[in-house]
Computed example of a mutant assay.
Amino acid sequence: MQIRNATAGDAAAIAAIYNDAVLHTTAIWNDVTVDAANRADWIVQRQAQGFPVLVACDAAAVFGYASYGPFRAFDGYRMTVEHSVYVDATRRGSGTGRHLMQALIKQAQTDGLHVMVAAIEAGNAASIRLHQQLGFQQTGLMPQVGQKFGRWLDLAMLQLRLNDRATP
């Protein structure tokens, strides 16, 4: 497995992983799928803003991706990012998500960021467990703030402090 920066050539694979999550999981709280052009634009925009888009791949295919971006739009949050990580359904549980997360955390530390936030559907025990194994701590639970598939969804908030700086 290789972890590398995404390129426009990865957009179709990223769209397929994203769309599977939209259609079949509560990991993404959207109802609308996207096409490769949408994901190519997303990659360009993220990278232009200085945020990484990483992919997990082998010689044959991309089978996971991860990124982070602003947690909130206000200046005071500029050292905090919210991330996302998604893995092809056939590769979940294979360690791909862990490898992507480790690379993403390292990148955030290199970028001098202070906190990484994870917002995870509270019923996604595998994702919450992975994040906790990587040092994230659950800091909140927001009951019934979302909905999908005809039911209310709770949002678990987790965070990882990326460094021990006493001041910004």
Score class of each variant (00 low, 15 high):
140 G>W: 03
118 A>T: 06
163 N>R: 04
106 K>C: 11
136 F>Y: 13
142 M>A: 13
87 V>S: 02
105 I>W: 01
147 Q>L: 01
81 V>S: 04
129 R>I: 07
103 A>M: 07
149 F>I: 02
152 W>I: 10
97 G>K: 06
100 L>K: 07
158 L>H: 05
124 N>E: 08
144 Q>W: 10
111 D>Q: 10
136 F>W: 04
163 N>S: 05
111 D>P: 06
154 D>F: 11
152 W>L: 12
139 T>M: 09
92 R>T: 14
116 M>W: 01
124 N>A: 03
164 D>Y: 00
148 K>S: 02
96 T>I: 10
97 G>F: 02
161 R>A: 13
119 A>Q: 12
97 G>H: 04
105 I>C: 05
100 L>M: 09
138 Q>T: 12
113 L>Y: 00
91 R>A: 14
93 G>Y: 03
148 K>W: 01
100 L>C: 10
103 A>L: 06
106 K>V: 13
155 L>H: 05
123 G>W: 06
130 L>H: 00
101 M>Y: 10
124 N>T: 07
108 A>S: 07
107 Q>G: 01
154 D>Y: 13
158 L>Y: 05
99 H>A: 15
139 T>K: 12
117 V>D: 05
135 G>L: 07
83 H>S: 09
91 R>V: 12
111 D>V: 05
105 I>V: 12
125 A>D: 14
88 D>W: 08
158 L>V: 04
102 Q>C: 08
96 T>N: 10
120 I>W: 02
137 Q>S: 13
144 Q>Y: 06
96 T>A: 15
99 H>L: 15
124 N>D: 09
143 P>V: 12
99 H>S: 14
115 V>H: 00
119 A>G: 10
90 T>G: 13
156 A>T: 10
82 E>C: 03
113 L>K: 02
126 A>G: 09
133 Q>H: 13
88 D>N: 13
104 L>E: 01
122 A>K: 05
125 A>V: 15
144 Q>H: 14
105 I>R: 02
97 G>I: 03
80 T>Y: 03
123 G>L: 06
104 L>S: 01
99 H>W: 13
163 N>L: 02
110 T>S: 11
100 L>R: 03
137 Q>C: 10
104 L>K: 02
82 E>K: 04
100 L>P: 09
89 A>M: 14
152 W>S: 07
136 F>G: 00
86 Y>N: 08
113 L>W: 00
77 Y>T: 05
124 N>L: 07
158 L>M: 13
161 R>I: 07
130 L>C: 04
153 L>W: 10
160 L>V: 02
97 G>S: 11
81 V>T: 11
156 A>L: 12
135 G>H: 05
94 S>D: 14
91 R>C: 14
112 G>H: 06
87 V>Y: 04
91 R>F: 14
123 G>M: 04
105 I>Y: 01
84 S>Q: 04
131 H>K: 09
85 V>G: 06
150 G>N: 10
126 A>D: 11
117 V>H: 03
160 L>R: 02
142 M>L: 15
100 L>G: 07
135 G>S: 06
163 N>G: 01
131 H>D: 05
133 Q>I: 08
79 M>F: 14
129 R>G: 13
132 Q>F: 09
89 A>P: 14
162 L>G: 06
89 A>K: 15
112 G>T: 09
164 D>A: 10
99 H>R: 15
